[in-house]
Nucleic acid binder design. Sequence first.
DNA 1: CTGAACATTTGACAACGTGAACCTTTCACG
DNA 2: CGTGAAAGGTTCACGTTGTCAAATGTTCAG
Lengths: 156, 156
Amino acid sequence: MENTPTKVVQEPADAITREVVDLMAGLVALFHREYEEAAAARSLTGAQAKVLALLRRGPMPMRHIAQTLSCEPSNITGIVDRLEARGFVTRQADPQDRRVKLVAATEAGRSASEELRESLNFAREPLATLAEDERTTLRDLLRRMLEGADPETDPS
Amino acid sequence: MENTPTKVVQEPADAITREVVDLMAGLVALFHREYEEAAAARSLTGAQAKVLALLRRGPMPMRHIAQTLSCEPSNITGIVDRLEARGFVTRQADPQDRRVKLVAATEAGRSASEELRESLNFAREPLATLAEDERTTLRDLLRRMLEGADPETDPS
DNA sequence: CTGAACATTTGACAACGTGAACCTTTCACG
DNA sequence: CGTGAAAGGTTCACGTTGTCAAATGTTCAG
């Protein structure tokens, strides 16, 4: 109990970095609230909305969903159950490997997800306060921060 | 079902804004994961850690906690119960208004929260890829986006 | 063919979160 | 005053997320 469990070596973190981290925290909180709210407006939970969003690129094995969301596969079972019960996704066996089940969004699922995405006017008010070139700068900075780190937003 | 439920009037959202929103989503996911992980490493849940973080500025009525976290007050009861059971917070009656219960972090609570905050090396790797002046720019942009919007990160 | 590894499911359990009902306290108003 | 409405917390019932451990079915290497 007397030494920090996971990380030990860590630079002191300068003032700017620290402040950026705090600002991020605020942004994250804001975003999270809005996302959850937008999902709820379509009687989806945040987790369901996330899964649905993942499936926009096509069917996906549950294992992959679990990995992307960094949670246990057994958790996905329940979420997909509920989405399936409402007709937003289907489970189909993968012909290549009969162990895996491919989850695919139905038309209803796709459009619900798309609608939600469109309604995400998060950061639209906040972003509106920035000039165009500032937004570009922000985009570039965020891009650089995220490159190689994030599987979810990978546009491939 | 044929018209969007909540929002109707909404500008088309230019490409840059849209991309920034997507990048934010990635960042949010990343941050969220790390936060939850860092909390878990101290056997706290995310919600408990958030409450504890709120109390760093001093005791606070439960009602206020609920408002800041935008959730129902009844939810806070349980979270504070669990924090209290572990000796991280105490409940004390507000002398001004005996309906109110002020939640205060104990020394253990404060240090746990501080430790967690320090360990949040989120964005330290991501941020490390940015030069100092870029970090400053990022900070300024984020500040402007959040000003007037976010009660949680208010540095007062 | 056998056993290890893998994908999913099931079941038990804890935490979060909501909504409604309830108790106590406060406060405005007659 | 004294009464009733409103506010702060709690409790209860309920559904969703999340974990872990055990089971089932499938694949694949040896």
